[in-house]
Every structure is written in structure tokens, then in C-alpha cells.
């Protein structure tokens, strides 16, 4: 895993598959930086989806099987650690797509918007030239 730092927030990513790990500590740091966002709502907004058929991944921190989750109405399925250690996106594009789709559905919520804005900006392909 390579550590990727953007705007003083760190993500871990695999240069082979572009999977991205967003550690809980870094999510908190991001929210703190953005000012008083709506508290602990992150994990509530990202809800577990039971009908996902993907195979379960294990959490890189605690090694427990992770929950399949998404933002209500969002199209991207991600993996969330049941103990709140962090969130795993299967590929960098996934995280960017998550930012887009979640931005539409949960655009009103401060917490999730801070996260999606960050992911969108950090991973957006439009920044290729800059």
C-alpha cells in the first residue's frame, strides 16, 4: 500500500488495483478541518446493504469481515469495518463515483458532503492536467 496525502488528509491505496482505504482517524480529521460538521453521523449515513452479493473483505486494521454498505440511494457499494476502523473502496474510480452519486442523494447533509467533496476533489480525473 502507498500512502496518499492530499490537503493534509491521508488515504492508503493499492497501486495494483487502485483500491482505497479511508481510515476512520483520517475521516475524523477531515471533518474537524472542515469545521463543525454534523458529528458522528458518518456511520449512520453509510448504511449496511444486506442484498449485496459481493464476497466479503476483511478489515485491514482489525481483520474482521467488513459490512457491505452504501449511502441511501447511492449506486456504489463499499466495505465498511463493523468496528468503525474505516471504509474500503474497491478502486479509486469507485471512490470518485461514490463521491458523485452520494453527492446527489445526500447533498443536504454536511458530514457526508465534506467527505464526498474531499474524495471528489482528491480523485477526480478532471484534475489530470493540473
Amino acid at each position: 500500500m502507498v500512502v496518499f496525502e492530499y490537503r493534509q488528509i491521508e488515504l492508503d491505496y493499492c497501486p495494483g488495483c487502485f483500491g482505497v482505504w479511508f481510515d476512520e482517524g483520517e475521516v475524523e480529521l477531515l471533518l474537524e478541518t472542515a469545521g463543525p460538521a454534523s458529528g458522528d453521523a458518518v456511520l449512520k449515513l453509510i448504511v449496511v446493504t444486506r442484498d449485496a452479493t459481493e464476497t466479503k473483505r476483511r478489515c485491514p486494521v482489525c481483520d474482521k469481515p467488513m459490512d457491505k454498505a452504501s449511502v441511501p440511494g447511492g449506486k456504489v457499494i463499499l466495505d465498511r469495518c463493523p468496528h468503525g476502523n474505516g471504509i474500503w473502496f474497491d478502486a479509486g474510480e469507485f471512490a470518485a463515483a461514490f463521491a458523485e452519486s452520494a453527492g446527489e442523494t445526500a447533498g443536504q447533509d454536511g458530514t457526508i458532503r465534506v467527505i464526498t467533496d474531499f474524495l471528489g476533489e482528491a480523485l477526480d480525473k478532471r484534475h489530470e492536467e493540473t
Partner: peptide, 12 residues
């Protein structure tokens, strides 16, 4: 160049 910092482990 894009503003990101990449930190690569020694056993990469």
C-alpha cells in the same frame, strides 16, 4: 505535480 504527496514503503 498535482499537489498530492505519495509515501512509499521501503519494501515496495
Amino acid at each position: 505535480d498535482c499537489g498530492a504527496v505519495l509515501k512509499v514503503p521501503p519494501d515496495f
